[in-house]
Design a protein around this nucleic acid. Structure first.
Lengths: 108, 108
DNA sequence: CATGTATATTACTGAATAGTCATATATTCA
DNA sequence: TGAATATATGACTATTCAGTAATATACATG
C-alpha cells in the first residue's frame, strides 16, 4: 500500500500550489511568460494589470517558486521557473475546454 | 501563433478549476476516493471531516465535475469522475516534494 | 403515516486575499 | 549628491470562503 493518509503538511503544500494557480491574473502572467523572460513593465502591458497589483502577483508566484527573477539594471525580469507548470495549465485548460464542449453538446 | 491573449472566460474557468483543488480537505477527499466509490459516511471516517463540512466540499467538487454521485437507497456514493484529476494531483505532489528536497539540500 | 437514518442546505462568523492608492526602495545617470 | 525611473511594500476595503450549528430534505422500514 502506498499510504493510509496523506500528511497534513503535504496536503497543505499541494493545496497552496494549486491556490497560486487559482487566480486568473496569475495565469495570465504565466501565459505571458511562455515566450521567455519579460520585465515588469512589459508584463504590465501584456496583461493589462497595474503596477502594484502585478507586483504583488509576481511575489506570490515567486514565493511558490513558479517564476524566477533576475535583475538587470533598473529592470527586473521574470521567467517561468519550470515548464512543467505550463504543461499543468495546458492540461487543465484542455479539461476545461472538453467539459465546455460536453456541456454544449448536452444542450442540443 | 496559437493566440495573442487568453479569453477572460477561459482564464476564469481554469482558475476556478484550480481553486477547487486549492483546499486540503478536498484533496483529502479525492485521495480517499482513489480506491473507488465511497458514500458520505465512509468519507467522513476516511477524512475526519464532519458531515456538513464534507457535504459542502462534495458539492464544490461535484459542481466542477470532478466527482460523480450516485444514489443507492439512503446512501449517496461519490467517485472520481475522471482519473486525470488524480494524475494532476500526483504531478503537483511530485513537484512539491521535489521542491522540498531541494530546499532541504540547500540547508546543508 | 410515523420514525429513524443519511445527506443537503441555510445562516452565521472569522480569516484570507485581490485590488487600489500612496509611499518606499533600488538602481542609473548627470 | 540629486533627479528620474522601475519595482516593491504598507495600509485599507470589499469580497470570498471554510468551518460550524441548526434545520431541512430524501429515502427506507415498520
Amino acid at each position: 500500500m502506498r499510504h493510509r493518509t496523506l500528511s497534513p503538511a503535504l496536503l497543505a503544500a499541494v493545496a497552496a500550489r494549486f491556490k497560486v494557480l487559482s487566480e486568473p491574473a496569475r495565469l495570465q502572467v504565466l501565459d505571458a511568460l511562455r515566450g521567455g523572460p519579460l520585465h515588469v513593465s512589459a508584463l504590465m502591458e501584456a496583461t493589462g494589470l497595474n503596477q502594484a497589483n502585478l507586483s504583488k502577483h509576481l511575489q506570490v508566484l515567486h514565493g511558490q517558486g513558479l517564476v524566477a527573477r533576475k535583475r538587470d539594471g533598473l529592470f527586473v525580469f521574470y521567467e517561468v521557473a519550470d515548464d512543467s507548470v505550463l504543461e499543468l495549465c495546458d492540461l487543465v485548460c484542455g479539461a476545461v475546454e472538453a467539459r465546455a464542449r460536453k456541456a454544449a453538446l448536452a444542450l442540443r
